[in-house]
Design a protein around this nucleic acid. Structure first.
Lengths: 233, 233
DNA sequence: TGTTCGTCAAGAGCAGTGCTCTCGTTTTTT
DNA sequence: AAAAAACGAGAGCACTGCTCTTGACGAACA
């Protein structure tokens, strides 16, 4: 039973995969709003109602695409960061940043699905949470490494976190055990700065404003790295 | 002609305004995707085709709402920042940040229209550009003021902008004349960090992660202020 | 004052959407 | 071999943005 399932189950898995593939292609070209179950069915030579045998609703198909997207982005970040020597913490941060940016620019519509405005009636189910944490896990890991290596040198005159933030962001804290609060909040701030930039760039806010966006992004991420206390090796 | 136009023109302006008002209400409750010309017409007791006398297409109605949104946000930022003493540059920055956040949290769907994923087939016409710059103009103004007052003290060990960024971001540079490049790029970075945070918060990425989001936001904006060289008075 | 002319709301209609239900057929299970 | 489950096809519902035509009303002009 486990090794070779029934013919029906195999063709079902095959068709499910084909549906998501076609849907992802439509998503890439038309955007999230232009994703149409009927168009997917048409391209498969099926009738629209048959799709509902595989995905109970359009939202469930969207969920599948979102989970795939989080995993693709997470994998890109993991690979980009892993290509850097472990002791070069600034390099690991920059590599992770560029991996996010490169993936987002290469897959703008999928990125919009992950980090843009939520789709109208859509509520992310719990399944997406695990895949969603892969990118920030990389950030937490490299900060924790840097802290353990004594390579974190926060700038002078940096304001200390107020007391009401003492026991906050538990989930975020778990990703970098042992890291003190002031460093933790600079990391959180850097994380939002990264995605803030990528959002602006992917959604076109930098058109006709910045030309060499890659260089500007690189510099901005170096600035936030300095705030985090990561200095060149 | 100028003071009192014909009755027809006045009722036309009135109806146009009523359409945008109803549309804005629908946008606030349903989100951008749920905005329907037919629903607006229904609520006005008109027939759907009549709406097209006032807005040639759904996108034109969206454009009107977007321009209104940029102006509302810009005005909120201007007012928030203006309430702070001119010489307290850090306070002005924090006031502007909280104004953005407060407005975004109060009008999440309108904010999504401005800074979220672009609406599928929609391309922003040139009209939106002027209104779009109001918030960043405030930022540029306070940085320029701080620079002129000699109140900008960049942190040590901050990396200098690479040479390829020397003549970039001309539009951004115009907002803060006389400000040197290193300060300018910290300001650009702070700008993206601000909207990165607000994006995350409005779009729900901080749910179940950070509880006291206002305090965390305030601290994050103080961190970026330090990177910009704005210190407490 | 009477008549044209432009503006307007209404209605029907087109092509498209997500989704539901039913009806035979095919495959798996009992 | 019989019962059960899964499946594709088709019709249909309520909805969308948008177009076109029709008839009525108001304003300007002769």
């Amino acid at each position: 039973m486990t090794a070779s399932r029934t013919a029906r189950e195999r063709v079902r898995a095959e068709l499910t995969r084909e549906i998501t593939d076609i849907a992802r292609r439509q998503l890439a070209t038309e955007g999230a709003g232009g994703l149409s179950l009927r168009a997917v069915a048409r391209e498969m030579g099926m009738v629209s109602s048959a799709i509902y045998r595989y995905f109970p609703s359009r939202d469930d198909l969207l969920t599948a695409l979102i989970i795939d997207g989080y995993n693709a982005l997470g994998e890109a970040v993991e690979q980009g960061e892993a290509a850097c020597p472990r002791e070069n913490h600034l390099g690991r941060w920059l590599a992770a940043c560029h991996a996010v940016r490169d993936w987002a620019l290469a897959h703008p519509h999928e990125y919009a699905l992950l980090y843009g405005s939520p789709v109208p009636g859509y509520h992310a189910p719990q399944d997406t949470v695990a895949a969603r944490a892969r990118d920030v896990t990389v950030l937490g890991g490299l900060i924790a490494d840097a802290w353990r290596a004594g390579a974190v040198h926060l700038p002078d005159r940096l304001p200390a976190p107020p007391p009401e933030l003492a026991s906050q962001a538990g989930a975020f804290r778990q990703l970098m055990p042992g890291v003190p609060d002031d460093v933790l909040w600079t990391a959180a701030s850097a994380w939002t700065a990264l995605y803030g930039w990528v959002n602006f760039e992917v959604f076109g806010q930098f058109n006709n404003v910045i030309d060499d966006r890659r260089a500007a992004f690189d510099h901005a991420m170096r600035l936030t790295a300095t705030t985090m206390g990561l200095t060149p090796v």
